[in-house]
């Protein structure tokens, strides 16, 4: 098992994950919870029922400004005009359009997409007029809530109806989640209902525990990255 002190970075949640028996592995320079507990098959089933996974170690990047959409399209991104929508890219990355001029780009679970890195290298204040960096990788935590009970569980912590028949895949709600501001994106993984949650990094431990508390009613538990990768 990886000792978290030997990797360059750790999620704010690593102590919470260790308490629950997480086996850490190095992902993107982070100590990342790959598996939680010893029964991988049970953990995979948990992710399909109701699981919460820390994706903070994965790649993400943000931009905002009146000319951001044009700049992203110029870099090869595929997106449309409607805000509060997620636009999946060919290489597995997802571009979340939060408003006319604000975007979050989420990398894929296997770190195959080069889009977040390419955008970070291509951008500079001098060559992207009207487009500014938002330090999502340093300021925002990222969790994935997956499983058939996820829609019902949200009713306990969020005012928006997240049940799958009311909240479409790739739809975004920027709203109050357990009394915190959060971006909730429905990004189904394979045939499994799944939501990506992006929110203030400094409050990661609070929201992690608040969600696990709300998930108890549905027998929800934390899961590792491999379980979410297995959803497809």
């Amino acid at each position: 098992m990886l000792n978290p002190s030997v990797v360059p970075a750790r999620s704010f949640l690593y102590r919470e994950l260790q308490k629950r028996g997480a086996a850490l592995g190095e992902v993107n320079g982070y100590g990342c919870a790959m598996r939680i507990g010893s029964d991988a098959a049970a953990e995979d089933a948990q992710a399909r029922s109701l699981g919460l996974c820390d994706l903070t170690p994965l790649k993400r990047i943000g931009f905002k400004g009146w000319a951001t959409a044009e700049w992203l399209i110029g870099q090869g991104a595929t997106l449309e005009d409607a805000p509060n929508r997620v636009y999946p890219q060919d290489d597995g990355a997802r571009i979340a359009r939060l408003s006319k001029g604000e975007f979050v780009i989420l990398g894929d679970l296997h770190l195959r997409s080069t889009l977040p890195d390419r955008l970070g290298i291509a951008w500079s204040i001098n060559n992207a007029s009207g487009c500014f960096r938002v330090p999502r990788e340093d300021a925002s935590a990222w969790l994935c809530l997956s499983g058939e009970h996820a829609g019902a569980m949200f009713a306990k912590v969020c005012g928006i109806d997240m049940r799958p028949q009311h909240f479409a895949n790739n739809q975004i709600a920027q709203t109050s989640l357990a009394r915190m501001n959060a971006i909730i994106m429905r990004n189904d993984r394979g045939a499994t209902l799944a939501f990506d949650l992006v929110f203030d990094l400094a409050s990661a431990v609070y929201l992690w525990n608040a969600l696990l508390d709300a998930m108890t009613e549905f027998d929800g538990k934390p899961v590792g990255l491999e379980a979410v990768r297995g959803l497809g």
Partner: peptide, 10 residues
Amino acid sequence: PLNGPRNAQE
């Protein structure tokens, strides 16, 4: 106008 109907507390 951006997010639709929401609780006034937001």
